[in-house]
Design a protein around this nucleic acid. Structure first.
Lengths: 135, 135
DNA sequence: GGTTGACCTTATAGCTACTCTAAGGTTTAA
DNA sequence: TTAAACCTTAGAGTAGCTATAAGGTCAACC
């Protein structure tokens, strides 16, 4: 199976797959006589796993760790559990931060007259006031 | 005023200020005889504005636009208003996405036994299932 | 006058996670 | 045979800094 077909199956782009190989995130694909990469089922499994893990919000380095655990029969599920919880917490923090940002933006929008006049409360706000964000 | 004092006043680091000058986001500071950058009140105003705008979630290019508007006496507040609303919408989308991600992570965490055993439902989930995120 | 430490300068590389481009080889179909 | 659609690699570009190196300057102390 060529790289673009593999890409369709795992939801990643060919470029991304090559990139993952380049940074040693996946084991290099075997090659055909013409030098083309050749993918089989177990390769797709790895790539699929990565696609899902990235989609779930894990960084490349976290994916590396998860993939190690995934492929390590002696793993302890506690370890994975801790990783996921930690990630969930970080996402929660990010959400808090974005909520504060959103609130601030809505406040800014409301403060503005929204007409053709040059005076703009938004710009005054950005120039003068402190932000009331969390974090 | 040297760069590090200016940095303290506007909440940015000296490196960031130099970077903003380098990418032509701020007007270059005048220099003392020794080559050091020399900051005055109106310079700080610009830097402060940028600090707040970045904190509020605007990208560098958006900041460039906002700063232009801020310094343009002929601006129309509609224009700024539109920019802010658009930004608020994008932040809302991002929040939705992160909420879905968080939900998924919590679900994953709950599915796992969290013991010393090698079996781990989290890894099974990442390997097998589709994610139920928005977008 | 010399030295130390804290500042300042520039240029350059590194970070994340790709994406895009260029320049070229291979395969397939018309 | 020729064009389109693949494949390959290497290298640059993206955002927004941060860190490093290699050097100049300044203020204080002895």
């Amino acid at each position: 199976m060529n790289i673009s077909e593999a890409a369709k199956h795992c939801g990643l782009s060919p470029q991304t797959i090559r990139y993952y190989e380049q940074i040693n995130l996946v084991t290099p694909a075997r090659r055909k006589d013409n030098g083309y990469r050749d993918y089989r089922k177990q390769d797709l499994e790895q790539l699929n796993f990565l696609h899902r893990a990235r989609e779930t919000g894990f960084s490349i380095e976290e994916c590396r760790e998860l993939l190690d655990l995934y492929q390590n029969p002696a793993r302890q599920s506690q370890h994975v559990h801790a990783l996921v919880l930690e990630k969930a917490e970080r996402v929660a923090t990010q959400i808090k931060h974005l909520n504060a940002m959103h609130k601030e933006l809505v406040k800014l929008a409301k403060s503005c007259q929204d007409d053709g006049a040059p005076h703009c409360a938004i710009l005054d706000n950005l120039a003068d006031h402190d932000m009331e964000t969390a974090q």
